[in-house]
Computed example of a mutant assay.
Amino acid sequence: MENQIVKQEQGAKWLDTVYKQAVKGVGIGNTSVVSMAQDYMIKHKSKEEACKAMLKNQVIKCTSSGIITGIGGIVSLPFTLPVNVSTVLYMQMRMIACTAYMAGYEPSSDQTETLVLACLINVPITQLVKQVGVKASTKVATNVIKSVPGKALTKINQLIGFRFITKFGSKGVINLGKAVPFVGAGVGGAVDFFETRTIAKRAYDFFFEN
């Protein structure tokens, strides 16, 4: 149990660090999430149209993403993520956070961060809220999170962090990379495309459709 708590904290800390960098924008050509969202909203008649255009472009960028430099303060985990995996996760966070902003959420708030991370890892917020002992009177995740006190929010983030470590530390991308070190870039790009497209649809449904 103690080891599990440590892993939860490590995963949550890593996600929090990368999320804050993603919202601010780091690396060559990256602007803040707010600036990115406003640029799309100026060019389209509605927030919905702007969001769909942004999501489409971000899916393409994630598929052909280069190495993003300058992500500082990345803490150690029980495993090491390949740079390309970290890059794609970073861009996916920006995509979800941008969607949240267009839907009326403040990207820098703790509540929005929790929603974005839950969307990224695909963890039901209502389920997590119940796990930390908070009674949820609504099934709408974005409404539930508003009433969650700070300490409970921290516990929820730790649970998300544990799910993150379980997803990337024991199965899937990490082990695949170790087992097949010379896997073609085309295969990796295809995986990134389908995964990011799925996340994009989930983000739109999550923040615009509830």
Rank of each mutant, 00 (worst) to 15 (best):
N3V: 15
N3K: 14
N3S: 14
I5W: 14
Q8L: 02
Q8Y: 10
Q10L: 08
G11Y: 06
K13Q: 15
L15I: 04
D16Y: 05
T17Y: 10
V18A: 07
Y19L: 03
K20A: 05
K20I: 08
K20T: 01
V26R: 12
V26L: 02
V26G: 05
G27H: 13
G29F: 03
N30W: 12
S32D: 00
V33L: 00
V34I: 15
A37T: 03
Q38A: 08
D39A: 11
D39N: 11
Y40Q: 02
I42S: 12
H44P: 00
S46R: 03
S46V: 06
S46H: 09
A50F: 06
A50M: 03
C51E: 08
K52E: 13
A53L: 01
M54N: 07
M54V: 08
N57L: 13
N57E: 15
I60G: 05
T63R: 14
T63M: 14
S65R: 11
I68A: 07
T69D: 14
T69A: 13
G72P: 01
G73I: 04
P78K: 03
F79R: 00
F79A: 02
L81K: 04
S86A: 15
L89R: 04
Y90V: 02
M91E: 11
M91F: 06
M91G: 00
I96C: 00
M102E: 05
A103I: 06
A103K: 05
A103L: 00
A103W: 02
E106M: 11
S108H: 10
S109K: 08
S109A: 00
D110N: 09
Q111I: 13
T114K: 00
V116L: 03
A118L: 01
L120R: 07
V123N: 05
I125K: 03
V129Y: 00
K130M: 13
K130C: 08
K130L: 08
Q131I: 12
V134M: 12
K139E: 15
V140F: 08
A141Y: 00
V144Y: 05
V144D: 11
I145H: 04
V148A: 01
V148L: 06
P149E: 03
K151F: 13
A152R: 12
I156V: 13
N157M: 11
L159Q: 09
R163G: 09
K167G: 06
S170V: 15
S170T: 15
S170C: 10
N175W: 13
G177V: 10
G177Y: 13
A179Y: 12
F182V: 13
F182D: 14
V183A: 15
A190H: 06
A190I: 11
V191M: 14
F194R: 09
R197T: 08
R197A: 14
A200C: 07
A203K: 06
Y204V: 09
F208H: 00
N210T: 09
N210V: 04
